[in-house]
């Protein structure tokens, strides 16, 4: 069984991001970049499935600039067998990514596409669902548990108000939630071996996909700074302030 794991290069989750001074975008110059945490969870899950003998091949793929190779190497160090970079300098959006993945799936023919539910930079939470729509495959999003049995994928989903379990016909699209697993540290020997694993590069054009953006970024700014609160004397004052100052109740 083959698993395709799409991953994204994002600003490391420990880094505090600030807008550029002209507000045109987030300032990403010289920041530490990492594999998106949800993608890392997806890679880990694929590796665990292979360790259980359910999966035979793991292919990591990333769509983005050339430097995304670094994150693909991380995926290879964690246990992916080979990697593909779909290289473009354009800022790719979920729709374009889903189209590229669909085109890649036509040749790779994976049994499962296992990807993060969202990336921590754009927080779009769209790629998996869009890919489900393009392919017509069953999808299990926000997975907190994934098991393969009798040729089906059983996904425990984190939904509002609890957990929902769905059984998906393969091939299927599964997106990982935070609690699916806790990723391992890539061992140092595996980091060194990752360099020798195959990493192929192609372009969106070769896949016949137009990745030019459909949306326009207008402005990026910091949220308004919070001012210090006050302690009110009694409930009556609180209600009064909520009504007349904050105007959140009427």
């Amino acid at each position: 069984m083959k698993v395709l794991v799409p991953i994204k290069r994002v600003v490391d989750y420990n880094v505090k991001v600030r807008p550029k001074s002209d507000g045109s975008d987030a300032d990403l110059a010289n920041l530490k970049m990492s594999i998106n945490p949800f993608c890392e969870i997806a890679v880990e899950e694929a590796v665990r499935l292979r360790e259980k003998g359910a999966v035979t091949e793991i292919v990591a793929v990333s769509i983005g600039m050339q430097q995304s190779q670094e994150q693909l190497r991380t995926a290879l160090a964690l246990g992916a067998d080979r990697a593909i970079l779909i290289s473009t300098d354009l800022a790719v959006e979920p729709l374009a990514i889903a189209k590229c993945l669909k085109a890649l799936m036509d040749s790779e023919k994976p049994d499962i596409v296992l990807l993060g539910k969202q990336a921590i930079d754009g927080d779009n939470n769209q790629t998996g669902q869009m890919l489900g729509a393009f392919t017509g495959y069953a999808q299990g999003t926000f997975a907190s548990e994934l098991t393969l049995e009798d040729g089906r994928a059983v996904v425990k989903r984190e939904v509002d108000g609890g957990l929902q379990t769905v059984s998906l016909e393969l091939p299927a699209i599964v997106t990982s939630d935070l609690r699916l697993n806790e990723p391992r540290y890539a061992s140092l020997p595996n980091i060194m071996k990752a360099k020798r694993k195959p990493l192929d590069t192609m372009t969106p054009e070769e896949l016949g996909v137009d990745v030019s953006p459909r949306t326009q970024l207008i402005n990026v700014r910091l949220p308004a700074e919070r001012v210090a609160g006050i302690i009110v004397e009694d409930v009556a004052t609180l209600v009064d302030k909520l009504k007349n100052e904050a105007k959140v109740i009427s």
Binding site: K32, S34, Q69, E70, R73, L188, I191, M192, A194, K195
Partner: peptide, 15 residues
Amino acid sequence: LDQETLEQLLSTVRR
């Protein structure tokens, strides 16, 4: 080691 592999090694240890 090449720079990229070394950097990955170091960031794993750091983490």
